[in-house]
Each structure stands twice: as structure tokens, then as C-alpha cells.
Computed example of a mutant assay.
Amino acid sequence: MYYLSRDLYFPPARQASPEGIVAIGGDLSPERLLLAYHNGIFPWFEDDEPILWWSPPERMVLFPNELKVSKSMRNIINRGIFKVTFNIAFRDVITNCRNIKRDGQPGTWITPEMVEAYCELNRLGKAKSVEVWQDDKLVGGLYGIDLGHIFCGESMFSKASNASKIAFIALVKQLEMAGYLLLDCQVYNDHLASLGAREIYREDFLDILKR
């Protein structure tokens, strides 16, 4: 296992362990985080763990033209009960992602240190959010890292039925219009699969990342 020093360096993602760990340690400075994402690596760890840097052997991604929007979701969107904004309440979004209770998860991997690190990336224009509002209340959203041709989704939350789906669909449509190659969803889950995301091999993801 590779242990990071103060130097801004990561071993190649292809050298990850079988479960996908590339390295341990280091820090969450903007420079190190951006270097990680540009090399197909992301941090994922619990509050009482050292920083773990991952690049799983299979990557969950969504190609924008493969987005699936059900008829019921189209009806919800057309009813206009939600308002969607982009990047106007980043700290509120990431704080909600940290605090929201999730089925089968006793805690959160979004540590206070991580909140501050990503808020700094937002200040630098590298981390962005999508907000969903209902009756002027923030009821859903997501955030991630914008690489210019790939958006690396980090987390989402929902306080109203379908609010996180609304955020996801709005983001994908914006990415498609801007010519992005894909939305990186990192690891598999059924919720994302229902929206059209699928797994591709790490090698294929890294090839797209380097375009």
C-alpha cells in the first residue's frame, strides 16, 4: 500500500489494490484533491480513519445521452413544483449531504475537514452544486468536482420525494448541452442505475478522463 508524503503525487490509478485503494494519507488541500480527480482518484474514508484514496476497478458513470427519465418523473418536472438552481448554496448542499440520514449507514464519510476542503474548492470555482427548492426551502441537491469535460459527482440528498432525482436530471441535461463526456458517479447503486448510469472498466474511464 502506498503511503503519501507531503509531495503532491499519486501512484497510477491502475496500481490500486483489488478493492480499489490507490493510496493512504496525505491531506485534503485543493491542489491534492484536484490532482486526484484529474487522475481518476477520489477520497473516501470514515471520520476515525486515515484518508483513503480510491479508484475502483469498475466505475459507475452516466453518459449524458443515456439518461433515463421515467414518464412519472417527466410529469413531476412538467408540474413545476420544484425550482432548480446551480451553484448558489454550495455549503448548504454539502452540509445537508453530510447530515442526512441514509438507510443502512450509521454515519457519514463527509467529515468536517472534507466539508471545508470542498467549500474551498467551490470558492476556487472547481466544486459546484445543484440546488432543488420547494416553497423557497432547500429540499434536495448534489455537489461534485467540475473538470471541464467530466463532472465528478460526490453526494446528493433529498428531503422531499424525488428532489435528488430532479437535481441529477437537471445536472445531466446541463452537462449534455455543454458537451461534457460523462458524469462520474464513482460506485454502483440502484438509484443511479435506474437513471441510466452503468459501470465501465477503470481503464476505459481513465482513457476518457485523459481526452
Rank of each mutant, 00 (worst) to 15 (best):
G179W: 11
S5M: 10
G148N: 13
S17K: 07
R102Q: 01
M73C: 13
N87G: 03
F157M: 02
Q174K: 15
C97L: 01
D136V: 03
F10M: 08
Q174T: 06
M73Y: 11
M73Q: 15
G107A: 14
D27K: 05
Y118E: 06
P12W: 10
L142V: 09
S155W: 03
F10K: 07
F86M: 11
I200V: 14
R79T: 00
S70L: 09
L182D: 09
A178H: 13
N122I: 00
C185P: 10
C119V: 12
A16T: 01
R91Q: 06
V115H: 05
D135T: 08
R6S: 15
L121S: 10
D7V: 10
S161E: 14
E154C: 05
S5G: 15
R211Y: 11
E131R: 07
I41L: 14
I77L: 15
K83I: 00
E116T: 07
M156W: 02
E58W: 10
F42D: 04
F82C: 07
P112G: 10
L121K: 07
E199P: 08
H38M: 14
I100F: 01
I169A: 03
L4S: 05
G179I: 08
N122T: 00
I81P: 11
N75T: 08
G141D: 08
G107M: 10
I88L: 13
Y2L: 06
P106E: 12
A23T: 06
I166H: 06
S70T: 13
N189P: 01
V84F: 01
W44K: 14
I208Y: 11
R123Y: 12
N122Y: 09
L52A: 04
P30Q: 00
V69Q: 11
K126N: 09
G26W: 02
K210G: 03
L206V: 00
F90M: 02
C152D: 02
D103M: 09
R211I: 06
R79E: 13
L147Y: 04
D136I: 03
V115F: 03
G25P: 09
Y188T: 05
G148L: 08
P64S: 07
I76R: 09
D190C: 01
L175F: 05
W133Y: 13
A197D: 01
D184M: 10
F45I: 00
L52D: 00
L33K: 10
M60W: 04
G148K: 14
F90N: 03
N39A: 11
C97D: 00
L206C: 04
A197L: 07
E31G: 05
E116Y: 06
N65A: 09
V115M: 12
M114K: 02
P112T: 04
D190Q: 15
L8C: 08
Q15C: 14
F205L: 04
N78K: 15
A23G: 07
A23C: 10
R211T: 06
G140H: 12
C152H: 01
V22T: 08
S29N: 04
C185M: 11
L8D: 13
D92Y: 04
W133N: 12
P50V: 00
D7K: 15
W53K: 02
A193M: 01
V84T: 07
V115D: 10
W53D: 11
